[in-house]
Design a protein around this nucleic acid. Sequence first.
DNA 1: AAAATTATTAACAAATTTGTTAAAATTTTC
DNA 2: GAAAATTTTAACAAATTTGTTAATAATTTT
Lengths: 209, 209
Amino acid sequence: MTKHHNNKEQDILAAAKVEFLEKGYDGARTTSIARIAGVTHAMLHYYFKTKDQLFERIFHETIGTLVKSILDVFTQDEMPFKDRMAKALEMHFEVIRENHLLPLFMIREVASRPERFSMIKNVISSFAGNLLVTMQHDIDLAAKRGEITPIDAPTLLLDMLSLNVFPFIIKPVFEAATGLNLNAESKFWDQRKKENIEIIMRRLTPSQA
Amino acid sequence: MTKHHNNKEQDILAAAKVEFLEKGYDGARTTSIARIAGVTHAMLHYYFKTKDQLFERIFHETIGTLVKSILDVFTQDEMPFKDRMAKALEMHFEVIRENHLLPLFMIREVASRPERFSMIKNVISSFAGNLLVTMQHDIDLAAKRGEITPIDAPTLLLDMLSLNVFPFIIKPVFEAATGLNLNAESKFWDQRKKENIEIIMRRLTPSQA
DNA sequence: AAAATTATTAACAAATTTGTTAAAATTTTC
DNA sequence: GAAAATTTTAACAAATTTGTTAATAATTTT
């Protein structure tokens, strides 16, 4: 518990989040974080002993947000399965839209230092198993009712994540290639959300032989 | 044109590709590249003046491979549109499977240094426009024939890329979370390829009102 | 085989970056 | 308001990393 008002600590955290999310661990500079936060870089080491510790704080937050965004997917209550799915897709899409830098950040860090993230295993597997079991149960029920075509829960989950997350990951490339600023083009994202729901709905609809 | 047999130059290039693809520009070390290539790091600077120039070589190759993988999508000739599409999806999936590190590499670099990649604009826009025009033309034709439901070419292209590329991008996270080694599990990727084709086929099938 | 070109090495240098420390300033506690 | 604890600063240090250079070795050219 800090005694003084710790605005500087908060400033550093905020600056670190921007720096780490944009440039990744390797590209981030503690001096740059300090400069953005408006403090000497000795302050950064005073509050957070090392660059690593500061990074851990930010990364942990990130994982939390992403994990929650997926967890929430299936906490919808009594509705027809397809409606719940559509609602879940929409909610998930909006979370990613508001945190569009998080997925690439997490993927990049895990990719460049996989050994470092044994912790992810615990964080994720502790709840992912449960989510998939629940999903599969609901899928099987709806399929038996003839509301949807049968599908594996992991397959469906990866379909959803691919469609909802990838556009935000490819965004910088897309912008570099077209010269457009997609964040300004809110129409683009609204259309994308619709498309993702449409595509999953069609995937789930039973084919009439 | 180098006069001597330039195996070392090739060794350095090969080592650089591994290092840059795995760790990204910021995480890559020229000393590490030299060590992997089995040469002194002065040799690296002899053949490629700077880290930047070496990186450019690798990055250019990468962009070439990826661009070609997408270009090839629509060079299939006379077949029903849906069949061409399925074939294109399958081919694209296999290219990415064989170069599974390339997409994340490119996305990561563009994301952390967008200003540096004005060149991408030229490389991509020079052909992308053409591809999209061709695609849209074929889509409209097939739609008029009642073979498929109408769709925007950019939308369909992004659907395909999302489904085909994202699983490979999320792979390290997935592996960290599950402890599995997906490269060993070729069944997983075969199933994924099937699912992607299935999902796009359903997206394209006209809905019967 | 001598000359010219190219490849290789080892030692060095400059810049950057993370992290430390000890003293000074500020705030809190009593 | 004095003592104690905490915050802040400035200067420094160690390690890393990219890049240079000048001398040496090897190869090609003539």
